[in-house]
Nucleic acid binder design. Structure first.
Length: 627
DNA sequence: GAGTTTGAAACT
DNA sequence: CAGTTTCAAACTC
């Protein structure tokens, strides 16, 4: 144990320093995060040393890195710890319940290893930690901080519910008490804690303290997207009034299977629906502090309201407190958060001023609109003409760049990975760096980068971020959508603040979360920090290149997603050729990489699910571990 | 609390 | 892919 502590101490000393987390605690976090048994955890110590641990664990690292990047800072004093890597839209419960599971839970070595290695490879960024702690310093009380922290995760986990009103937390005094206590009944915390409340709030939209209303499914067994719990990636819990519910830890396999099935239809079915674009302004514009405009958040798929005029909660946009956008097919939109038509007008104006001719989009037939939008990274920042990359006459090319090779993958935040196939080349172990690598012949990324400031780069990067992350092997493997998901898991944009250009080695953030505790400015630091860990994340992914990425013959196909307007992330054009040469892509070392973002933290039945007593859970776990 | 309305999800 | 059905939440009374 002490050894692990030391290791973690090494891995993230800053975490302990900045966030008042003892290495012990950090270690606990890891343990609980991995849901490992003591013995498992013990063995992890050694695995931890073996950073060459391969394969899928590397995918997990993405997520687990998130966890490590966030947890220590975010959950410092609380007993709330996080994550076990999982699939897209993992059960939110797992965030919360990880701690309790840590003592008796079962976890695959994979997961544990992943987390372990993550802790050693990705948590070396002092700045990263600092960023987060900085962010939390803004919160006056520890409890408040916790709230925000929880929201941060929860936000990304549950469709950016706070899009418009940043953090609107719903925490009962009791909950607060529990949360400030280090040794309270965690199950209590979890079942009544902020995370749950936050979610319940979504469901109930109550402001009177009743935050416990949840689903009420009768026929779907809570295994369809009709079920809000299921859709949000959490298990049903006590407050639910569902009947014949299968969305419970006991039925984990069923749940996973169902999710897999649904994801096979629509890989991004569990991705956040609300896109909170990060609107990065060039430095000159940043001073207004208006980097993020909540009002610019949009529903990815858009609503389809006919009668409610987007003024009732029938409307998903309205319900999420976001305005309607061009992607909506609503009629008579009067969305108080932003009418569709206003959106169009604004957008057009923005486009005009930005020389990005997109006004025609509005006149296009729907399909084209979608395509256009999907290809337009700006699309997601409708009300904030932010990403008007500083010119130098490059806008046109940039916009062209961004609009060509995109994938009309509606639901995805991420989608647009034009999964450029690059033959797995020697040097292109960078192939992890994936996708957006480009050869100079096709895209002079250097000049491209020169044309945009770092901030613009960040903005672009951010545009690429809002994506759920695939990750849970158990979900990924064998899933029809697994490839796409793997891709998404690997996608990232990596920016090197020093060179102010796109480079390999980067960090992970949850950009799908509206409340990311990381500022772009801090990104700077963070990235620097991560640079030192270059061998970390970057390398980590190296060996786990999904076949799809290795397969050069693979045609570029958009991930099929059921909805017409997902957030698009538009990689530079000609992506299909980008990786085609091992020597081509960004030889200069600048890489243009999509960065995946987990829609929410990992799955695994953790929460005190409805009707599942500790006993039953323990039995369940016991059975699993026996398996 | 029952019944109705609504629009997303699922199905054909 | 469009049309239809099913579903559960939102809403109304």
């Amino acid at each position: 144990m002490s050894r692990r502590c030391l290791q973690f101490g090494e891995a993230q000393p800053e975490a302990t320093a900045t966030c008042s987390i003892s290495t012990n605690r950090a270690n606990n976090i890891i343990s609980s995060t991995s849901l490992a048994t003591n013995s498992e955890t013990e063995s992890l110590s050694s695995s931890h040393l073996d950073l060459s641990a391969k394969s899928r664990t590397r995918q997990l690292v993405n997520l687990s890195q998130l966890a490590m990047n966030m947890i220590p800072q975010c959950y410092g004093k609380s007993s709330l710890t996080v994550l076990k890597p999982s699939g897209i839209g993992l059960h939110l419960n797992s965030i919360v319940n990880a701690t309790s599971m840590g003592q008796g839970g079962t976890a695959s070595m994979k997961v544990a290893q992943a987390i372990k290695s993550t802790s050693t490879t990705s948590c070396q960024s002092t700045e990263n930690i600092d960023n987060c702690s900085d962010a939390f310093e803004k919160v006056s009380t520890p409890q408040g901080a916790l709230e925000q922290k929880v929201c941060t995760i929860a936000g990304s986990a549950s469709e950016s519910l706070f899009a418009e009103e940043s953090v609107e937390f719903h925490m009962t005094p009791n909950t607060k008490r529990k949360f400030s206590s280090e040794d309270g009944d965690r199950n209590d915390i979890l079942s009544s804690g902020p995370l749950m409340c936050f979610y319940r709030k979504k469901l109930s939209n109550n402001t009177d303290g009743d935050c416990c209303k949840r689903c009420n499914c009768k026929k779907t067994k809570c295994l369809k997207l009709y079920c809000d719990c299921f859709a949000a990636g959490i298990y049903c819990a006590e407050p639910c009034s569902c009947q014949g519910c299968f969305n419970r830890p006991e039925y984990e396999e069923t749940v996973l299977e169902t999710r897999k099935q649904i994801e096979s239809r629509n890989p991004l079915a569990f991705a956040p629906k609300i896109v909170q674009p990060v609107t990065e302004f060039p430095l000159s514009n940043r001073e207004d502090g208006n980097r993020k405009t909540p009002s610019s958040a949009r529903h990815k798929r858009g609503c389809n309201c006919k009668r409610s005029m987007c003024l009732k909660k029938y409307c998903e946009c309205y319900q999420a407190n976001v305005g309607c956008s061009i992607g909506c097919r609503c009629e008579g939109c009067k969305n108080v958060y932003g009418k569709k038509e206003d959106y169009c007008v604004t957008k057009e104006m923005v486009n005009r001023s930005g020389e990005i001719s997109e006004s025609r989009v509005a006149a296009k037939p729907k399909k084209e609109i979608f395509h256009s939008e999907l290809c337009d990274p700006y699309h997601l920042t409708p009300l904030t003409p932010s990403v008007q990359c500083s010119d130098h006459g490059k806008n046109a090319s940039i916009s062209r760049l961004l609009s060509r090779r995109c994938l009309p993958s509606p639901e995805s935040d991420l989608t647009v990975l034009s999964y450029a196939k690059s033959p797995r080349s020697p040097r292109t172990s960078d192939s992890n760096d994936i996708l957006l690598e480009t050869s100079k012949g096709n895209l002079d990324i250097d000049s491209f980068c020169e044309g945009i400031s770092y901030n613009n780069a960040v903005a672009l990067a951010d545009e690429f971020h809002c994506t759920p992350l695939p990750n849970h092997p158990s979900v990924i493997i064998g899933s029809p959508s697994s490839k796409a998901r793997e891709l998404t898991s690997l996608s990232r944009v990596q920016l090197d603040p020093r060179s102010r250009s796109l480079t390999p080695g980067g960090s992970l953030h949850w950009h799908s979360s509206p409340i990311m505790p990381m500022s772009p400015l801090n990104d700077n630091k963070k990235l620097q920090g991560l640079d030192s860990a270059d061998g970390g994340l970057y390398d980590i992914l190296e060996d786990d290149m999904p076949e799809i990425l290795k397969d050069t013959s693979m045609p570029i196909k958009p991930v099929k997603a059921g909805s017409p307007n997902g957030k698009r992330v538009s990689p530079p054009h000609n992506l299909h050729q980008l990786g085609s040469s091992s020597s081509g892509p960004l030889r200069s070392g600048r890489k243009f990489i999509l960065k995946a973002v987990p829609s929410f933290p990992p799955l695994t039945p953790c929460i005190d699910a409805k009707g599942s007593s500790n006993q039953s859970r323990n039995n369940f776990q016991e059975n699993r571990s026996n398996d």
